[in-house]
Design a protein around this nucleic acid. Structure first.
Lengths: 213, 213
DNA sequence: TAGATTGTTAATCGATTAACAATC
DNA sequence: TAGATTGTTAATCGATTAACAATC
C-alpha cells in the first residue's frame, strides 16, 4: 500500500465514520455514490480512495461496511492501545480530559500536567494532574506515545521539546503557536482560532457572492 | 481580488498569526523565506499568497507586518463584531464558553442552549444557558450570525437545521456528524475525533518508514 | 554598485474528474 | 439478460515549484 495523501486520509476518516454509522443501523453495503454525496465529492474519488487501501466493492451492491471498518482501523492504527499525556489543565485541557470520545480510538489520557499549583495535585476527569516540572520523567514512566498540548502559545514550543525528549511519537497541538518538531515526530495543529478565522472568511466570501449575483 | 483557495486561506491565517507575533516583538518587516520556513512550504508560495490579497513587499526588506495584519483582518472579516450562539453545554461546550480567544476575532458567544434541565437555567463562562426549545427564537432576538454545535452526533443535523432557520450565516460543527446545510451557509467541521485519527495515521506512517529504512 | 529579496512567467507535479469497460 | 455499480485509464484542472527578471 502506497502512503495515503492527506486529502485521501481525511476522506477515509469520514468513510470510517459513515461505515460505523451504517453498521449501527444494520446496513451491510454502502455505495460510492452515497458516500460521495455525503462528503461532497465526486464518486470516482471515493472508489479511488477505497482502492488505495485495497478495499474492494461488489458491483450492484457497493462496499462491505464491516470490511471498511476493519481495514481502516488497521490502516489508521486504531487497533492499538496508546497512552497520552496532556499538558495544560486550563479550560480546554479540562474539556479534553473529560472527553470520553478518544477511548474509542484506543487513546487513553494517563496523566495531565500544569505549572499552576492551584491546578496540579488533584484529579480531573479521572486523571491525575502533576506539576509540569515532572513532565519529562512522568511521560516516560507512564509510557506515553502521544502528547497533547493545551497551554498558552508562548509555552507551546518548550512543552513540545520536552515531550520529544520524553520520547512521544506524536504531538497534538491545540495552541495557535506554530511549533517545530523533528521529522520523525507526527504533529497535528488543531488550533481552534484558525478554524474560526477560516469559517469567518467563508462567511465573507458567501456574503459577497450573494451580493454580487 | 479573486476568491482564495482553501489552502491559500489556511496559509494566510498562519501568516496573520506570525505577523501579530512579529508586531508584538516590534518587528516591522518579515520575509517570505522566514514565513515559508515556519510554515514548511516553498517561499515562492508565500509571495504568491501575499500577492493574492494585494500585499506588496519591499525588495531586501520583506513584507510590512502592520500592513499584513490590516489587510488580512479586512480579507477575513475580522473587523466586524459578530454574535454567536452555542448549542450543547457539555464538556466541550463549556470549554468553548470559557475560552476567551474568540473575542479577539470579534466573535462573542451571547447565548448557550442545552436540552438537559440540569444544564440550562444558569450561567457558564458569563453566558446564560437556555433550554434548547428556545433556540430558534432566541438566536433571532440575540442576532446571532454564527452557530456553534457541540452536541452528540445524533442531534447535530437537527440543531443545524434550526440554526439555519434562525438565519445564521455560518455553522461551526464540533460533532463528528457529517451535517448538510444549504449552499449559502458557511460550514466548518472541527471534529476532534477525526483530527486524532489523522494524527494516529501519521504516527503509523512514520513508524513504518523508520522501520523500513 | 552589489546583493538580497520581491514578483511573475513557465514548467512540473499531483489531485480530481470524465469516459467507459468489467462485473455481478 | 439488463442494469447498476465497481474499477481503471486517460484527460483535465489546479496547486506547487523552478527559473529568472525587476527592484530597492
Amino acid at each position: 500500500m502506497k502512503n495515503l495523501s492527506k486529502r485521501t486520509a481525511q476522506r477515509l476518516v469520514r468513510c470510517y465514520y459513515l461505515a460505523r454509522e451504517a453498521r449501527a443501523l444494520g446496513v451491510e453495503f454502502i455505495t460510492s455514490s452515497k458516500v460521495a454525496l455525503l462528503l461532497g465529492v465526486d464518486e470516482t474519488q471515493i472508489r479511488k480512495d477505497m482502492a488505495s487501501v485495497n478495499l474492494e466493492g461488489v458491483p450492484r451492491k457497493g462496499y462491505p461496511v464491516e470490511e471498511i471498518i476493519n481495514r481502516l482501523e488497521e490502516v489508521f492504527g486504531l487497533k492499538k492501545d496508546r497512552n497520552a499525556v496532556l499538558v495544560g489543565a486550563g479550560n480546554l485541557g479540562r474539556a479534553l480530559l473529560n472527553y470520553p470520545g478518544f477511548l474509542r480510538y484506543g487513546v487513553r489520557i494517563v496523566g495531565a500536567f500544569d505549572k499552576d499549583p492551584q491546578k496540579y495535585g488533584r484529579e480531573v476527569g479521572g486523571v491525575w494532574v502533576y506539576p509540569v516540572e515532572e513532565l519529562k520523567e512522568k511521560a516516560k514512566t507512564l509510557e506515553a506515545c502521544l502528547g497533547i498540548i493545551a497551554v498558552p502559545p508562548r509555552e507551546a514550543q518548550g512543552v513540545a521539546d520536552i515531550l520529544v525528549e520524553a520520547g512521544v511519537e506524536g504531538i497534538w497541538n491545540f495552541s495557535p503557536a506554530l511549533i517545530r518538531v523533528p521529522a520523525h515526530i507526527a504533529l497535528r495543529n488543531e488550533c481552534l482560532e484558525s478554524g474560526l478565522v477560516m469559517l469567518l472568511h467563508e462567511m465573507e466570501v458567501i456574503k459577497k457572492s450573494l451580493a454580487g449575483s
